[in-house]
């Protein structure tokens, strides 16, 4: 039986590793599917990538080891964000801090839309929401 898994990770590259083609390696060597959710990479600066990795569990584990060996810091997000839609007033304040545009608001009806797929579980919206309706819960 093949054990397929998906994880969301934040990768921090030291300035010297910013040009390293990690994504290609993950795809070719570890046969992972890579979905880049957020990128903040500039030459000679610490770079940050948030990616979703899908693949066989043992390949994911090997890839994570490899990433660490390359001197790239890796943090696995294991929380989930819950939005209490009933109590939301659709003001839009949370959209101003959301780095991945998982939260958006606008025409036609100015209802807050939350795209779970794009969420980085960074928690910025939790504090930015004046109505306290966003909550970060740790996944078991």
């Amino acid at each position: 039986m093949i054990d397929i898994n998906t994880i969301k990770v934040s990768l921090t590259f030291p300035p010297s590793k910013v040009t390293f083609p990690l994504m290609t390696k993950l795809v070719r060597v570890f046969e992972l599917e890579v979905n880049i959710l957020h990128a903040d990479v500039r030459l000679n600066k610490t770079g940050k990538l948030i990616v979703e990795l899908t693949g066989e569990t043992h390949n994911i584990d090997d890839a994570l080891k490899y990433i660490e060996e390359m001197g790239i810091t890796c943090h696995i997000f294991n929380g989930t964000l819950t939005w209490d839609e009933e109590k939301c007033v659709h003001c839009g304040a949370c959209t101003s801090v959301c780095p991945s545009r998982a939260l958006t608001i606008g025409e036609p009806d100015y209802t807050l839309s939350f795209d779970k797929e794009k969420c980085l579980v960074c928690g910025l919206c939790v504090k930015a929401c004046p109505l306290n309706v966003m909550c970060l819960a740790q996944r078991e």
Binding site: V89, H90, C91, G92, A93, T104, I105, G106, Y110
Partner: peptide, 21 residues
């Protein structure tokens, strides 16, 4: 309301605080 404005040549996201809905 378009979601972006240009400040100093850079596209900056905008967000409302008042509920249009």
């Amino acid at each position: 309301r378009s979601g972006n404005v240009v400040i100093n040549g850079k596209k900056v996201p905008t967000a409302p605080l008042s509920s249009m809905k």
